[in-house]
């Protein structure tokens, strides 16, 4: 990715989650789309205000689980029936009830790993650098007790003067310009 320059966006800091949600709702109503809230704990109302209510983590998890379970089952069948047939107390080579147990464990293993790493991948993590960390007040509060709304400069409605005035109408603690 080429180095980006210029302004990343405007960040408003709020003391309470309610203020931030109210500003976010208004911003969405106003036509802003490229924006995000930053909170020290999950705020569901903020996600609703951003109209971000669906995600694909569960789909990835399901696919991982199906893949893991069928891989384990087919692997055991192939090993026990074709690759290395063993007569154990005269039981059939394809003794599928026994194969269910490792297949069950691998269903969970793959589903869990898919959910965890899929979530990280969709979130674009790990991402040690982000322009928001340049905001002087961001690291003081975003992971402790402050609530941030960032209007990003790539939004077609973004304008340094108007967007700032818009954010300031919600009485934030501060509105800060963030560079890339």
């Amino acid at each position: 990715m080429p180095m980006q320059e210029g302004i990343y966006g405007l960040v408003a800091e709020f003391d309470t989650p309610g203020d931030m949600v109210r500003a976010t709702e208004a911003a969405h109503h106003h036509g802003y789309r490229r924006m995000d809230c930053y909170t020290p704990y999950p705020v569901e109302e903020a996600a609703e205000a951003l109209h971000f209510t669906k995600n694909r983590v569960s789909l990835i998890c399901l696919l991982g689980g199906i893949l893991g379970g069928s891989t384990a089952f087919l692997m055991q069948t192939w090993i026990a029936v074709w690759s290395y047939p063993l007569n154990i107390a005269g039981r059939p080579l394809y003794s599928w009830p026994a194969f269910i147990i490792p297949a069950y464990e691998w269903t969970i293993l793959w589903a869990g790993l898919s959910a965890a790493f899929g979530m990280l991948a969709m979130n674009g993590l790990p991402q040690p650098y982000h322009p928001l960390f340049n905001a002087p007040n961001f690291r003081d509060g975003a992971t402790v007790d402050k609530f941030f709304l960032c209007l990003e400069a790539t939004d077609p409605r973004f304008s340094l003067v108007e967007s700032r005035a818009f954010l300031e109408s919600f009485n934030p603690v501060s509105v800060v310009e963030v560079d890339h």
């Binding site: 999950p42 903020a46 969970i108 979530m119 790990p126």
Partner: peptide
């Protein structure tokens, strides 16, 4: 990992946590 508390991240994070909980139970 560069966690910054983005709401979009939080929502996916919550889904993953619930799924992991749901998987850990069985």
């Amino acid at each position: 990992l560069g966690w910054r508390g983005s709401t979009r991240h939080w929502m996916r994070y919550e889904s993953a946590s619930l799924l992991l909980a749901g998987l850990s139970t069985p």
